[in-house]
């Protein structure tokens, strides 16, 4: 019973674990670069969740070719393709903000920025 459950759901659990790791980095680390890397991990965990849902046992990549009849679901692939491109766009805006923050405070560390704010 339990082993069947693990066999059925472990792909989702992997993405949940990655999501936990990403969220932990975002909350816990005060360096803004590291926060953005954590955000990327968080996003990728969602991608893995979607792609795992599209997988069909015994299926191949959804490209029509003689001799293959079982394909994985192409719809999640399309959605995640879009999401990856959007994620790079948001990451680049985030990095531009970090550069701007560094210009203003001479620091990319949240705690140091807080100290500077309190002094002002």
């Amino acid at each position: 019973m339990i082993s069947a459950l693990i066999n059925d759901l472990y792909a989702y659990w992997i993405s949940v674990l990655l999501m936990m790791a990403g969220l932990y980095i975002v909350i816990d680390h005060s360096n803004l670069f590291k926060k953005l890397v954590g955000l990327n991990i968080f996003q990728t965990s969602v991608f893995i969740m979607f792609i795992a849902m599209g997988k069909v046992d015994g299926g191949t990549a959804p490209i029509i070719e003689k001799g293959y009849t079982v394909f994985s679901n192409p719809l999640p692939h399309v959605l995640i393709l879009t999401a990856i491109v959007v994620s790079i766009a948001t990451t680049s805006v985030g990095l531009a903000l970090v550069v701007k923050i560094n210009k203003h405070y001479q620091s990319v560390d949240e705690q140091e920025i807080e100290k500077i704010e309190l002094q002002e």
């Binding site: 990327n40 990728t44 991608f47 893995i48 792609i51 795992a52 599209g54 997988k55 069909v56 299926g59 191949t60 990549a61 959804p62 490209i63 394909f71 994985s72 999640p76 692939h77 995640i80 393709l81 990856i84 491109v85 994620s87 790079i88």
Partner: peptide
């Protein structure tokens, strides 16, 4: 690589190039 294993080759291309 994980996306290739999960049959999503197009997503894997994009992730390798973009990500």
């Amino acid at each position: 690589i994980l996306f290739v294993v999960l049959d999503a080759v197009d997503v894997a291309f994009t992730e390798a190039a973009v990500g």
